[in-house]
Design a protein around this nucleic acid. Structure first.
Lengths: 229, 229
DNA sequence: ATTGTTAGTGTATGTATGACACCACAATAG
DNA sequence: CTATTGTGGTGTCATACATACACTAACAAT
């Protein structure tokens, strides 16, 4: 199938084109949000989409995902993991396109959004109020959300959504928002502390309306297995 | 990046070529095996590889995986699930190639292997005695094995490895081989029966050296969640 | 009839889970 | 200064679950 392979890193092939799409979750105002961009031209003009783009010939998918997220949405240094590869033959009306979806969780306070490239807007959008979306991106979001719900139960992946220091109530809120159910406060704290995935930081969260809360930090800010629920 | 898009299903693009590789596990003689083919020509001549091939322009990845497995290895009707997409820039010396790996479990007694296409051989090979392999296929196998070990603990995926009717001892052997540890017979049977993922079939497994065993069948021969271990 | 081999079964103990209510401490209002 | 409000922080008990463990049953082979 391959036609040509230039060592100076260009090759012409016949087959599906390859893209990556990035699915970035955050929590804002008590809700789970995703990062979307508004498409400014072409057949999907005015619709919203995940930040994505074509995979360059000389980059791995991990690299391409990182670079595309930075270029299209201005988010630097976000570590994503591969989610799934979507390949419906009609998923892009402009031609055959296979897309590898990546996802990550971020603390939205750490990033200022800026519109880039040929997009007309960029926004955090609540998962329960998604706008009209281009391609099969709604499906990608649903798939990623399911993965997130599963993964938060047996890993420490939630660290991505929180600042370096946080209270146990804030951590519990993250779990409740993602799992969409209430958790018992005492059992939750017992479990989290017994697992040793967090340690006390010095200092209290002051400035709230009530008793200050002890601050904690994750012992590891990298993916670890830990059966939480 | 796209150059051309013919509606009669051909498009020329610049970018990585896209392939699928299929990772088929089975159990033979008490060991976990994978299906490998021996490459007959080109820079990887004489090395072994997973059955794989280029994704046609008009097929989804699921379809391509099924068709390639049938065409390259003669296995029809095997239902695979997507494993991971591998994209190292040097994974194929012939040019830039991204590969979507699929995997499945089969009962090797149900399939006769036949060498096809330009391959010189096809064999089941024990996972602990793999030959020299082409591309990054050893890495794909390791990744798939890890996924299998995880997945057999919380799904009924083992049904793929067994015939329609089987004994509980045979089922337990499957678990012990994949998990590489011994399981307690009474606890295993208790758990499996309590979960209701199998039901008694009529008949006994006779012809063994000892007391005949009750036959069972899976209540569902499709992927179900079930916390087994 | 004896021996060998695998099938099949129950109990007891420790561990994890889930339900549940009150006092502590700070901020704020009066 | 006192009372009120709001969130932080803690322990126990009951139940379910996981684990460890040993003997009898049924058939085949001799």
């Amino acid at each position: 199938m391959k036609i040509k392979n230039n060592p100076d890193s260009a090759q012409l092939i016949i087959g599906p084109a390859l893209a990556v799409d990035t699915l970035i979750f955050t929590i804002r105002e008590g809700k789970l949000n995703v990062l979307l961009i508004k498409i400014g031209s072409g057949p999907y003009q005015g619709k919203w989409a995940l930040p994505g783009g074509i995979v360059p010939i000389n980059e791995t998918l991990d690299e391409a995902a990182r670079n595309i997220l930075e270029k299209k949405a201005g988010l630097k240094g976000v570590y994503m993991e591969q989610l799934y590869t979507f390949s419906g033959v009609a998923r892009d009306v402009r031609g055959r396109m296979v897309s590898v979806a990546y996802f990550a969780l971020v603390d939205s306070d750490q990033f200022a959004l800026k519109t880039m490239d040929y997009y007309t807007d960029i926004q955090w959008r609540a998962l329960d109020h998604l706008p009209r979306m281009a391609f099969d991106h709604k499906e990608i979001i649903q798939y990623g959300f399911a993965r997130l719900q599963a993964k938060i139960e047996y890993t420490n992946i939630a660290y991505g959504l929180l600042p370096a220091e946080f209270t146990l109530s804030e951590l519990q809120a993250v779990y409740e928002i993602i799992l969409e159910r209430a958790l018992d406060k005492r059992n939750f704290r017992k479990k989290i502390l017994a697992l040793g995935i967090v340690q006390t930081a010095k200092g209290l969260r002051r400035g709230g309306v009530s008793r200050p809360a002890q601050l904690y930090r994750f012992t590891q800010r990298s993916l670890m297995l830990a059966q939480i629920l």
